[in-house]
Amino acid sequence: MPSLEQTCECGGSGELSAPRLRSDTPERAGLDPGEIRHLVEEFHALADGEHPWAAGAVVVVGRGPVIAVAEATGWAVRYASYDPEADAGVELPPEARVPMTVDTPFDLASLTKLFTAVAAVQQIERGTLGIDARVGAYLPDFRAAAAQGITVRELLTHTSGLRPELPLYDCADDEQRLEMLRSEVPIGVPGTYTYSDLNLLLLQQVLERITGRTLDVLVHDGITRPLGMTATGFGPCPGAAATEDQRRPWAKADRGMLRGVVHDENAWALGGVAGHAGLFSTAHDLAIFCRALLTGGAYGPARILGPDFVELLLTPPGLGFALDQRWFMGELAGRGAVGHTGFTGTSLVLDPATDTFVILLANTVHPRRRPSDSRPRAAVGTRVARAVRT
């Protein structure tokens, strides 16, 4: 595999730019082809049968600048609705289904949190946001957070004590939703870990207040545009993989079969742009994102963060990456990998020790949500860990 120096190009500033991704063989990526072959076989089985793990899925595996695996299986749209009496999806006729491709966009769900975290660290790097500053210094009208002394670091590490979520989708309007956030008092012990969407919603408010720009603009201008992630953005995204026939009692709103609009009920209530959910993207775009973080914040001629601030993101306890959530990584978890999952069936893993990344995107909530099953994700992570050649 070529060294970084051999494959770098020179940017306009004279600084070497990080090599762009290219597709090549597992051997060229330093991955064992036998393990990769088994990975691909097992991956295609995930969408097989009458009750598959997911209606469809996409997997991308890369090491260094090489994408060694890029595969799609199953259907982006398979069901017209969900039949609660039969406890099964109502299948579309074959000619009406939409096949999954490697370019299919997905509702990223909580992978959105990673982009919000990067946007926050960009402000920390610029000196406009203090990592240990109190949220109340930026949002004095958010009375409960201010009174409790919640800090930016606590939001980014899920140690604020805030509960996992609030029923913002039941509020009458945006002002009522904001008032609910302003008055929400932590219920946990500050400093202890409790994964919470509210942390990223408050962080969104902080970022928008200090920059005067909305989160979608911050993500576009600071991350996706410089990296060339042209398929990534907040919805609507009409060509995305379908998610859920969203109805009560199993969901929190009655919206019918969803495709191209955000699945998360709170993000939907907030207009589709939220710190915890709302982004759509493809596996290839996420590969660029992963590669930029693995190279210390650069991709091609673009740099979104300095290496020290990428290290801040990825080093335990991490910022936004919820580093104690490793159950879905398989044997990659033992190498110090970091990553995140999304409720709709999305996940990514970065392994800085071996310069490896794994992206598995699936519409596991199509036609309706089920108890989470991360065994297929863990199996992919284990295959990749065993495939890495030193």
Results as ranks from 00 to 15, higher is better:
residue 256 G to F: 11
residue 296 G to Q: 10
residue 332 L to D: 09
residue 323 L to M: 15
residue 231 A to N: 13
residue 238 P to N: 12
residue 290 C to K: 01
residue 278 G to Y: 05
residue 283 A to V: 08
residue 298 A to N: 04
residue 275 G to A: 11
residue 267 A to I: 09
residue 248 R to I: 11
residue 303 R to L: 01
residue 233 G to K: 02
residue 247 R to C: 03
residue 335 R to G: 13
residue 239 G to C: 00
residue 334 G to I: 12
residue 293 L to E: 01
residue 321 F to M: 14
residue 266 N to M: 10
residue 238 P to F: 10
residue 247 R to S: 09
residue 260 G to W: 01
residue 333 A to H: 08
residue 286 L to R: 02
residue 336 G to M: 12
residue 270 L to K: 03
residue 331 E to C: 00
residue 247 R to W: 12
residue 287 A to F: 04
residue 304 I to R: 05
residue 282 T to Y: 00
residue 291 R to H: 15
residue 320 G to Y: 08
residue 249 P to M: 10
residue 286 L to V: 06
residue 248 R to T: 14
residue 286 L to S: 05
residue 296 G to C: 07
residue 301 P to T: 12
residue 326 R to N: 10
residue 313 L to T: 10
residue 270 L to Q: 11
residue 246 Q to Y: 13
residue 248 R to Q: 14
residue 295 T to I: 01
residue 256 G to S: 11
residue 329 M to P: 04
residue 270 L to P: 03
residue 231 A to M: 04
residue 313 L to E: 07
residue 249 P to L: 07
residue 281 S to M: 01
residue 287 A to M: 09
residue 315 T to M: 00
residue 255 R to G: 02
residue 286 L to N: 01
residue 318 G to A: 04
residue 285 D to W: 02
residue 261 V to Y: 03
residue 269 A to E: 09
residue 321 F to E: 02
residue 266 N to E: 13
residue 315 T to N: 10
residue 314 L to V: 12
residue 270 L to V: 08
residue 293 L to D: 05
residue 271 G to P: 05
residue 289 F to D: 05
residue 312 L to N: 03
residue 252 K to I: 00
residue 274 A to M: 07
residue 321 F to P: 01
residue 234 F to I: 08
residue 247 R to Q: 15
residue 251 A to Q: 13
residue 281 S to C: 05
residue 306 G to W: 00
residue 273 V to Y: 04
residue 284 H to Y: 12
residue 237 C to E: 15
residue 250 W to V: 15
residue 315 T to L: 03
residue 243 T to V: 09
residue 337 A to H: 07
residue 278 G to L: 03
residue 307 P to V: 06
residue 246 Q to I: 11
residue 314 L to G: 00
residue 313 L to K: 06
residue 314 L to E: 06
residue 284 H to M: 07
residue 253 A to R: 15
residue 270 L to D: 05
residue 324 D to N: 14
residue 245 D to N: 13
residue 330 G to N: 12
residue 327 W to P: 00
